[in-house]
């Protein structure tokens, strides 16, 4: 790796546009929201105002957000997202692996086939899922034909997790594909030649070598899951609430933007903590450099 001082012009050309874009169109707007999280609705003539705020009044929104009620919901969101992420990884890995080892002719087609469903609007896709899984949906009709069911497959946590896996699959497949694709196949051959079984090779060689893709995929799936609200809204039952739903409500029905902003930042802090934990663990097990 070069020191940035060695070639300043290249460094700034590469770094400049992206950094600028992110600072102006992301960090700055986020700054507005951050200020909002420390604010309160203004009180005008003894009434709580609907649209005006008193800025930087204190941390009351954060105090409210560490109530057990919201912590329980955050915790529930974490495990639902974790489960969805694991399932996503278990399904996406073989897909990405298969695509990478397919013949050159098939590769782009298979990749396209994986991504294609995601060009259909999320809502339409979710409604299509509902049509397939509802009490009188096709799955139950098929099961009914062989004398089983009908089963209630919608409006529970299973449906939410399945829906999340279905929705976020390409975020897992694409980074995995990018990493496995560049995997040096000679390592696998060497391992097999040296007498390791396919399984051992996969466990000891393939997985460690593709770890960066796995980690990227896990991050790309876990985090959007954590903040999702449409999927639990549409597929979940009476218990399906996730923190994304609570946040969404603050910005819409409850009209409590300061509290919504505070909850959003709480969610971000939780994510940062998880990412830092990962970095820390990676450092501790620094035996394998990945």
């Amino acid at each position: 790796m070069d020191n940035w001082k060695d070639n300043r012009s290249v460094f700034w050309t590469l770094a400049g546009p992206g950094t600028f874009w992110l600072l102006v169109f992301f960090i700055l707007p986020l700054g507005f929201l951050f200020v909002m999280s420390f604010s309160d609705k203004a009180i005008i003539n003894g009434e709580v105002s609907i649209t005006e705020y008193d800025y930087l009044t204190g941390i009351s929104n954060y105090i409210r957000s560490v109530d057990t009620l919201y912590l329980t919901i955050i915790w529930k969101s974490i495990w639902v997202s974790a489960l969805a992420t694991v399932l996503c990884l278990l399904t996406a890995y073989p897909i990405a692996f298969g695509i990478c080892f397919a013949s050159e002719k098939w590769k782009p087609l298979l990749l396209l086939l994986v991504v294609l469903p995601f060009w259909i609007n999320l809502l339409i896709r979710t409604y299509a899922l509902i049509a397939v899984f509802r009490s009188q949906g096709y799955v139950n009709l098929a099961l009914g034909a062989v004398g089983l069911g009908p089963y209630d497959m919608l409006y529970n946590n299973f449906a939410v997790i399945f829906g999340l896996v279905y929705v976020y699959m390409p975020f897992m497949v694409l980074p995995l594909y990018a990493t496995i694709e560049r995997l040096d196949k000679s390592y696998l051959e060497a391992s097999l030649d040296l007498g390791a079984s396919q399984f051992t090779t996969f466990l000891k060689v393939t997985i460690p070598l593709t770890m960066p893709g796995i980690i990227t995929g896990v991050i790309l799936v876990f985090i959007p899951c954590l903040g999702s609200f449409l999927t639990p809204d549409l597929l979940g039952g009476a218990n399906a609430i996730m923190i994304g739903n609570v946040i969404e409500r603050q910005f819409k029905a409850a009209n409590d933007w300061p509290f919504g902003a505070a909850l959003s930042f709480m969610l971000m802090y939780a994510t940062f903590a998880a990412l830092m934990l990962r970095a820390f663990l990676a450092k501790r097990s620094a035996g394998v450099d990945v």
Binding site: S49, L69, A254, N255
Partner: peptide
Amino acid sequence: LGEEATKVRDEIWTRVQA
């Protein structure tokens, strides 16, 4: 009902759902 009452109802609703 005013912003305060909206907030109270929203919290009740969150508790019911959770």
